[in-house]
Design a protein around this nucleic acid. Structure first.
Lengths: 155, 155
DNA sequence: TTTAAAATCACCCTAAAGTATGACCGTTAA
DNA sequence: TTAACGGTCATACTTTAGGGTGATTTTAAA
């Protein structure tokens, strides 16, 4: 808890410490130059320089950089920026392997070809596709592909 | 010419004048508080405050405004109104009835459903789809649909 | 560590898809 | 008129897809 406060107000504490250091420096200058001729002028100059620097630093630090927003209307073709509809995928509880099969289905591959492509047996692909159809509430692969494209599951 | 120099160094002259004014103010403060207790501290504080302000002002005035240009690409949907690729249709010699079957295929309908939709027999649809596959040089309906979409035969 | 889900595979069976061939009819252009 | 084509339909057959069930293994989460 104590550390939390420390880290949270780290900047404020740091600035406070710096200010204290500055005052100490001024005091040292005061002592050092008190017996010297024109000590006052030197001291005033030191204050002026230091605080000018402080002002500059403060300004640079605190002023927000002006953000100039330029809006460029870029014609984007609807299918150019396809992004998977993750929400729908999770909603339908479609696994990554099932999605792979679905993508290959959409390319027109047969179950046998998909099996060869994924280095698994034909039966495995049949199981995947069956589960896919149940999850997507369709009866045929063509329906699955059509629905998948409509829902943004595949490009 | 003289005016040219004046206008050119206007800012520097202005700042110099302001600085002189500031020094005058300080001198006045010096005179005013010289007989007062803690005059030195008051004077130093005044210097600190004024020069801090000067520093801030200087920084704000002289530092180039950082124009952080943010480019936002606004997607403008060039919702490419689908238009049938007549050329490809003619090239592949696909008849109107075959195109109808192809469109219904793309919607995920089975041959039986297509037959019912078009009020013809299942065998007729089988013939149409077979001819379609030959003309399109594919083996399966899923391939036909994929290729048809790619060629712009169907939306 | 236990549990649940994912991934894998097999077997059996039915339904659908696809191939091949042949036939009939109407339209249309040479 | 006839050849070509599109559309229709049928039969027979092969291949692929899909449903149902059960099992094992791996992986990830509780």
């Amino acid at each position: 808890m104590a550390f939390g406060i420390l880290t949270k107000n780290k900047q404020i504490i740091l600035y406070g410490a710096l200010l204290a250091l500055l005052l100490l420096l001024l005091k040292w200058l005061e002592w050092h130059f008190v017996i010297v001729d024109h000590a006052f002028e030197v001291y005033a100059s030191a204050i002026a320089i230091i605080f000018t620097a402080l002002g500059v630093w403060l300004a640079l630090k605190l002023v927000k950089p002006k953000v100039h927003t330029v809006v460029i209307e870029k014609p984007v073709f609807a299918d150019a920026a396809f992004c998977v509809n993750e929400a729908e995928l999770n909603k339908l509880r479609i696994s990554s392997r099932e999605l792979e099969v679905l993508q290959l289905m959409a390319q027109g591959l047969s179950n046998q070809e998909i099996a060869e492509r994924l280095f698994v047996s034909l039966n495995t692909i049949k199981t995947h596709s069956s589960n896919l159809f149940i999850k997507m509430e369709v009866e045929r692969r063509t329906q699955a592909v059509e629905k998948a494209k409509r829902l943004g599951l595949i490009p």
